[in-house]
């Protein structure tokens, strides 16, 4: 028996759109493979440009940051444990792609599979970026076991990412290759344990990132020397041991002229639950107390912005540049360097 057919694309365009908006992401994904016209109709569902994020570990997941929030997972499941290792390593055509997405009612994620599409990883990435109107690869995250993929092939497929995050248990050689292949990026997030002896190379610290974020571990704490070498506008650090002593010295050096590009420092000690003593940190530093009824200021360092709290301690660099240091919730230290270009008056 022939299944009844329905000429979908002969409906008014608004109703084609209405129908597609009711379909699940897997259904519209399957439709998008059928022709250029279908691909363009699906693209029209996504009016606003967004980004994609890629996570690489045991498998590869591409997530669209649009209202669908679709996660497409490649090279997953038992099939890839025993065979097809070379296909996976070279990011060849996966036989099965698992998709999940928010169900629209705030409940658990929904999911579905797409099989037998003869696309390799690069084709998939380009297709997803196109149909979901997510032209930028905003984040590439490498986790445990991402060394199963060829680092050169990863570079070919996932080039031009804005933010690179390298964590997890992989070979040092693989990590080196990844950093070599993907830098420069605007934002870099790393942990010391991805390097031999947990030592972050100075050649990395000295680079001009917009943001450099480092997850320090108690066994590999940050040193004053490392802090002064960092040349990024924004430094985000986690779990810094002996913070008061190091920051006291760092602030004194900054006041004398070190780290001239610096705009923002964030230290989050909430994981180790080490309370921050601001008075100890500021001992011996000339400072002034600001009235709490001052006009509200916002601070921007390129890609993020925050409200500058009224409380805190202000201090000045030798050239007159003002900075403010604030402790939030006992565990989070914010240092704002109030360059003219960083201040937003709203």
């Amino acid at each position: 028996m022939v299944a009844p057919s329905f000429p979908l694309l002969k409906l008014p365009l608004a109703e084609v759109r209405n129908t597609l908006l009711i379909m699940t992401p897997v259904e519209i994904l399957k439709l998008s493979f059928l022709s250029k016209k279908c691909k363009n109709v699906v693209k029209c569902l996504n009016k606003y440009k967004q980004n994609v994020e890629v996570k690489i570990g045991d498998n590869i997941t591409i997530r669209t940051c649009n209202s669908y929030g679709v996660n497409c997972t490649f090279y997953n499941g038992p099939n890839w444990e025993n065979d097809n290792l070379e296909v996976r390593r070279q990011l060849g055509a996966p036989r099965l792609v698992q998709c999940s997405w928010r169900d629209g009612e705030g409940g658990d994620d929904d999911h579905g599979d797409v099989k037998n599409i003869n696309f390799n990883m690069r084709d998939w990435l380009e297709h997803l970026k196109y149909i979901f109107n997510c032209p930028e690869l905003s984040q590439l995250l490498l986790e445990d076991n991402s060394h199963r993929f060829d680092p050169d092939r990863l570079k070919e497929v996932f080039q031009n990412c804005t933010e690179l995050r390298v964590f997890g248990i992989n070979s040092f050689q693989f990590n080196r290759m990844i950093l070599k292949n993907f830098l420069p990026v605007k934002r870099l997030y790393v942990a010391p344990d991805i390097f031999e002896d947990s030592k972050i190379p100075n050649q990395l610290l000295i680079q001009n990132f917009d943001t450099l974020s480092i997850d320090f571990r108690p066994e590999a704490p940050v040193s004053l020397e490392q802090l002064t070498i960092i040349n990024s506008k924004s430094i985000w650090l986690n779990d810094v041991m002996n913070l008061e002593n190091i920051m006291n010295k760092f602030i004194k050096l900054w006041m004398k002229g070190s780290n001239p590009r610096l705009e923002f420092v964030l230290v989050d000690n909430s994981i180790g639950q080490t309370e921050i003593d601001l008075n100890a940190m500021m001992s011996g530093i000339q400072r002034c107390v600001i009235p709490t009824n001052r006009r509200r200021q916002y601070f921007s360092s390129g890609w993020f912005y925050r409200e500058v709290p009224n409380e805190g301690i202000d201090f000045y660099r030798h050239d007159g540049t003002k900075a403010k240091i604030v402790v939030k919730d006992s565990y989070e230290l914010n240092m704002f360097v109030l360059h003219d270009h960083c201040i937003l008056w709203l």
């Binding site: 057919s5 979908l8 059928l34």
Partner: peptide, 29 residues
Amino acid sequence: LNVSCKKVANMAQGKTPAQLRRVYLLPSD
């Protein structure tokens, strides 16, 4: 429009791309 489009959208449930082409009469390039 919502309910009638929902009925049309339901025709896609569990279909492969080739089946979708037949159900929705979608021409190739």
